[in-house]
């Protein structure tokens, strides 16, 4: 079983260039860097040039502007005129000292961890279920992709209406069973729960597809051998499926974490982070400061954004490190 990401592309093509004799790559390399080779490098650079220009203009420059925003005191006037005062790390200090910081950090942790654990558990259960290949399993599995393909505004507004206090279908069902009306989106105790439920629903397809692909890489003979040895379904899952799926699981969870960390739309459309700060995550906080109120406050918003990048990169590096160690083994 080989599990690599597209990030391994560079390495894969390097070994391809070294030819079929991995024992002696250096001479081959040298030849490639000869005169025709260097001409080819210029050609390669030419083909990559649009991407390089693109990355500089539309990635590096916005990120640099964002860093610049976070280190200055940008008022609305200074924003348009471009003459802000240098603030150093004052914006960061302000963010850390803010009353919202603790809440946002805790909510971010709850939102991401609870979301991905449920997405993963449900996704895995469904992947194992669909892996048994019953009639219609292909069609049904495809239908499971729908939530992932819908525009987020569509899913989020549908969930808002379903969770509506007076007219929502969910409260209607709860009340039919004798429960009390729950103010899902408007009470501080349940707003975060409500957006987590919607977000779990959104993430199940991604987990299902990746874990299903992982399951298909486990050789079927293993299961046959285990069945002959008398292992039951439960034993087969815990002794074969789960351990062999570990690399894929780790990637799924880490990517899920990085994606969930960035989520703004679902929360913003359903609760705008409220009531108060009840469902405020770091990403939503950043959005709220910059674009959510009549008074845009870009500098703290940029500081929160940069904080998010740091967290995402830390987990991103763990992800890459893990992949590299599996490729070696």
């Amino acid at each position: 079983m080989t599990t690599t990401s597209v990030g391994a592309t560079g390495r894969a093509s390097d070994s391809g260039a070294a030819g079929h004799r991995p024992a002696a790559p250096p001479p081959d390399r040298h030849r490639r860097r000869g005169v025709p080779g260097s001409a080819r490098q210029w050609t390669a650079l030419g083909f990559a040039a649009p991407l390089l220009a693109y990355l500089l203009l539309f990635y590096a420059y916005p990120l640099w502007r964002n860093l610049d925003l976070s280190l200055h005191d940008y008022t609305v006037r200074a924003f348009v005129q471009g003459d802000p005062d240098f603030a150093g790390f004052a914006n960061y200090a302000e963010v850390f000292a803010s009353d919202s910081f603790g809440t946002a950090l805790l909510n971010t942790a709850l939102f991401t961890i609870v979301s991905i654990l449920f997405q993963y558990a449900i996704g895995l259960a469904l992947a194992v279920f669909f892996h048994s290949n019953f009639r219609l399993s292909g069609v049904l599995r495809a239908l499971f992709l729908v939530p992932w393909l819908l525009p987020l505004i569509v899913s989020a507004s549908t969930w808002s209406w379903m969770l509506n206090s007076e007219h929502g279908i969910i409260n209607s069902v709860i009340q039919a069973f004798g429960g009390d009306q729950i103010n899902w989106l408007t009470s501080p105790g349940t707003a975060l729960v409500a957006v987590i439920i919607a977000n779990i629903w959104l993430g199940i397809p991604f987990n299902l597809v990746i874990l299903y692909a992982g399951l298909q890489q486990i050789p079927g003979e293993l299961y046959e051998a285990a069945a002959i040895d008398g292992a039951g379904a439960r034993a087969r899952f815990w002794r074969i499926t789960f351990p062999l799926l570990r690399p894929v699981s780790a990637i799924t969870l880490l990517l899920g974490f990085i994606y969930t960390l960035k989520v703004v739309d679902v929360v913003w459309i359903m609760t705008t982070g409220g009531p108060g700060d009840a469902s405020l995550t770091l990403a939503v906080w950043s959005y709220r400061e910059a674009f959510g109120t009549g008074q845009p406050d870009f500098s703290p918003a940029a500081a929160i954004g940069n904080l998010l990048i740091v967290i995402a990169l830390v987990f991103g590096f763990i992800h890459l490190r893990m992949q590299r160690s599996w490729e070696k083994s």
Partner: peptide
């Protein structure tokens, strides 16, 4: 891995 909200602020500026 870069959050869209960060890119949005940079692009806005």
């Amino acid at each position: 891995m870069i959050p869209a909200v960060v890119m949005a602020m940079g692009f806005y500026a």
